[in-house]
Write a protein that binds this DNA or RNA. Sequence first.
DNA 1: TGCCAGGCCGGGT
DNA 2: ACCCGGCATGGC
Length: 229
Amino acid sequence: MGDRTNLLEMYAALRQAFGHRNWWPAQSPFEVIVGAVLTQNTNWDNVEKAVDSLREAGLLSPSALSEAAPQRLHELIRPAGYYRQKAGRLQRLARWVGEHCIEADSELGALKWEPLDQLREELLALNGVGPETADSILLYALEKPVFVVDAYTVRILGRHELIEPDATYGDVQEHFVHRLPPDVELFKDFHAQLVEVGKRYCRKRRPRCAECPLRPLLGEPVLEESDEA
DNA sequence: TGCCAGGCCGGGT
DNA sequence: ACCCGGCATGGC
């Protein structure tokens, strides 16, 4: 509890290295929700192709997406992979949003009035929405102070032994929330920084730890043998 | 050329 | 309560 500063120092080091990430570029909160589903285990470059196609087709609104023919969705989002699963997930989410917001409310303002815990429960109850997708929506689309945990976050903290090897999603999330002020902009950019450092230096295989900006702060990471080859 | 990407679900122990 | 195979495309 006394090490509240450590994570802020970690963020400072990343911010120093990469600058503000201005992450999750999207033209509306609803587009963030769409991206949150499409990026599940998928490279963002592929996601952008799918999002662009949906935009051109005029399907980036809850009602239009809800009513689209699944076949048509399959074609439009194919580059993002898992397209049959993701088409269903998008439509379930679109219908859920539609139940809460009037169509013109592109800021999803009506959703923000609902209690945070209830929002999260409702999201997790949707088939195809797990903890990371739900939290990404809460943070980046609804501006709620929820820290998003992803595979990079777990790998980075794991290799520096800042979390237990068998830590759950909730464990890692608490690690951050208990040590950071609940600041939406901080949560957004910190997660973005972790993804950036993860992509560049903390890859699953052949990591480049020597050049990682976290190394001066956190020291030598502990790698599995399979990571090094 | 295989491996990986900003996960999640369902069925099996 | 875990563990695992399946889901799919595109880039390096």
